[in-house]
Computed example of a mutant assay.
Amino acid sequence: MKKTIWALMFGLILMGCSNTKQTIKEEKWEESAQFVRETVVTDDGQKDDIVFRIGDNGKFGFGEYGPFIAGESQKYMWHFWGDEKTLTKPFKVIGVSKETGEEITVFQIPAQSLAPNNGADHHLPSAMMLPSSGLWKLEVFFGDKLFGNVVVNVKEK
C-alpha cells in the first residue's frame, strides 16, 4: 500500500513538473504597456511623442529616445522603484528572441550608488541594440536575481 501511495505521489510531482515546462513554452509574448506623452521638442513648437515602456511588475520602465530598430544602437533611460539594497547591485539586461530563442546580454554595468530621478528611486542611462526584428523579452537583473521583464517589438531597418 505504501509503495502505491509513493508511486502515485511521484507521478503527480512529475506531471506538475511537465506542466510547468509546457506553461513556459506557451508563455504569452505581448508587447509591454507603454505611456505616451506628446511634448514640445523644439524652440519653434514642433511636437513629438515621449514613450515610456512599463515593466511587468510596475517597479521599472525605460524612456525610449526612439524605437528599437534591428541592428541599431539607441539610448534608453531606465527608471526603478524599490529598495536601495536591491537597486545598487550590478545591473544586467538579457534579451530573448521569441522567434529564435536566442539569448544575448544587451546591457550590463557593475554596482552603482543610488541615483534618484523624476520621482524614481534610481535611474540608469543605457545604449541597447537588438540584432533582429520581432518580439524580444528584456529580462532585467539586479545581481543574480530577476527583477522583472519587458517585451519590445524590434522593427526592421
Rank of each mutant, 00 (worst) to 15 (best):
M1N: 00
K2I: 05
W6L: 12
G11E: 11
L14Y: 06
L14P: 00
Q22D: 08
T23I: 12
I24C: 10
E27C: 06
W29I: 11
E30M: 06
E31S: 03
F35R: 14
E38W: 02
T39G: 10
T42V: 00
D44G: 01
D44M: 08
Q46N: 08
K47R: 06
D48G: 02
D49K: 15
I50W: 04
V51F: 08
I54L: 15
I54A: 08
N57F: 01
K59M: 08
F60Y: 02
G61Y: 07
E64M: 15
Y65I: 13
Y65P: 11
Y65N: 13
G71T: 01
S73F: 02
K75A: 15
Y76T: 08
M77T: 12
W78M: 02
W78Q: 00
W81P: 15
G82E: 01
D83R: 09
E84P: 06
T86F: 06
L87D: 03
K89F: 03
F91K: 09
V93Y: 12
S97T: 12
E102P: 13
E103F: 09
V106Q: 04
Q108K: 07
I109M: 08
I109W: 00
P110T: 11
P110M: 05
A115W: 09
A115D: 12
N117R: 05
G119I: 13
D121Y: 11
H122N: 14
P125I: 15
P125L: 15
M128W: 08
M128R: 08
P131C: 10
S132L: 09
G134A: 04
W136R: 05
L138E: 05
G143C: 03
G143Y: 05
L146H: 03
G148C: 10
V151M: 05
V152G: 05
V154M: 01
